[in-house]
Simulated scan of single mutants.
Amino acid sequence: MSWGVGHLLALLIGFCLDLLLGDPHWAPHPVRAMGALIAALERLLRRLFPKSHAGELVGGVVLVLLTLFIPTGLTVALLWACRQVSPWLALAAESLLSYQLLATKSLADESRKVYDALKTGDLDQARYAVSMIVGRDTASLDEAGVARAAVETVAENASDGVIAPLIFLAIGGAPLGMFYKAANTMDSMVGYKNDQYLYFGRAAAKWDDILNFIPARIAGALMCLGAVATGYDGKNAWRIFRRDRKNHKSPNSAHTEAACAGALQLRLAGPNYYFGKRVEKPYIGDDQRPIEPLDILRAGRILYATAFFALLIFCGVPLLVLLFP
């Protein structure tokens, strides 16, 4: 079994495991290990480097280098050791790693909890459920605000939680997938423009922007296809994707959100509160109809269709070419 066939098979198996099992909270998870590593490195580097803007910038660069090198190097070493025993053991290990780097089912499941709470009329529980998957303040959100937050997080995380890791896994197997996930996890922990991380987290944020630049745009286009496949407004998804995909401070965050807003004929984003402070953001999409809890499930269907298109293009087609040249 060639290396290319092996890592594409591992991606296919991992994708299927993700759809079947979702995120096993009871089991050790590489992303949680990355989070612990990043937190430990941050504490160490803040002690080692001067408490100045320049010192924090340099410390942030060192954090990026160590966070990328350690998980990627450990993954390469693990797969090499498994191959020395058996190629099938290596395939099993890489399949499990690929599975843990994808989040299709867990993203849909976590948003489904918000829908279930809204369906039963339990707004407090819905606010709690959505607070687990978004960064904004949720205590004062009404039903429409909760539903909108859930739809937005499904749409936005379709890129960096599903499509981008799938692309990196397809290109370079579990080591490159781990490299991407380390960068993405680091950005989610330190890539903030606040007093604490403006300088220390700058390198992490910039590197994450670079890695996601192409995948985010691919994900937005694939979500337009996903809208067509699931019977939603694909033409409007493409229109809003092209018009509003840059309506965000991040160069990558609005692409899938714009496509989803167009597909569901909704207006998303806009001003929100973070840590008690109102943050002005542009709207994404047109206010063609009021949002409703069922839109959470609709966004989940589009997510699944988008993921299947990505799997077909980046895994299925190359695998067929390698197996049947």
Rank of each mutant, 00 (worst) to 15 (best):
W3E: 05
G6F: 00
L9Q: 01
A10T: 09
L12T: 07
G14M: 07
F15I: 11
L17Q: 06
D18T: 08
P24T: 06
P24W: 14
A27Q: 07
A27P: 02
P28N: 04
G35E: 04
L37E: 13
L37K: 07
A40H: 07
E42M: 05
R43S: 13
F49L: 03
K51D: 15
K51C: 09
L57H: 12
V58W: 11
V61L: 15
V62F: 03
V62S: 00
V64Y: 10
L65S: 04
F69D: 05
P71L: 07
G73I: 12
T75R: 00
L79W: 01
R83Q: 14
W88D: 04
L89H: 09
E94W: 01
L96V: 15
L96C: 14
Y99G: 00
Y99W: 15
L101I: 10
L101V: 10
A103E: 06
K105F: 10
K105V: 06
E110S: 11
S111V: 12
K113H: 04
A117G: 03
T120E: 15
G121H: 10
D124S: 13
I133P: 04
T138E: 07
T138K: 07
A139N: 03
L141R: 09
A144F: 01
G145F: 08
R148V: 05
A149T: 08
N157K: 04
G161K: 10
I163H: 02
F168T: 06
I171P: 04
G173C: 08
P175Q: 10
G177M: 09
G177P: 08
G177L: 12
F179L: 14
K181L: 13
M186R: 02
M189H: 03
G191K: 12
G191Q: 12
N194Q: 07
Y197D: 00
G201V: 08
G201D: 03
A203R: 03
A205S: 11
K206T: 14
W207A: 14
P215H: 11
I218F: 08
G220C: 08
G220N: 09
A221F: 15
G226K: 09
A227V: 05
A227P: 07
V228P: 00
G231P: 04
D233H: 09
A237H: 08
W238N: 01
R239D: 12
I240V: 15
R245N: 09
H248Q: 07
S250H: 12
H255V: 00
A261D: 02
A263E: 03
A263I: 02
Q265T: 00
L266T: 05
Y274R: 11
F275H: 14
E280Y: 01
D286L: 13
D286Y: 12
D286Q: 13
I291R: 04
P293D: 01
L294C: 10
D295E: 07
I296M: 06
I296Q: 03
I296H: 09
G300Y: 03
I302D: 09
Y304P: 00
T306M: 01
T306W: 02
L311T: 11
I313L: 15
V317D: 00
L319V: 04
F324E: 02
F324Y: 14
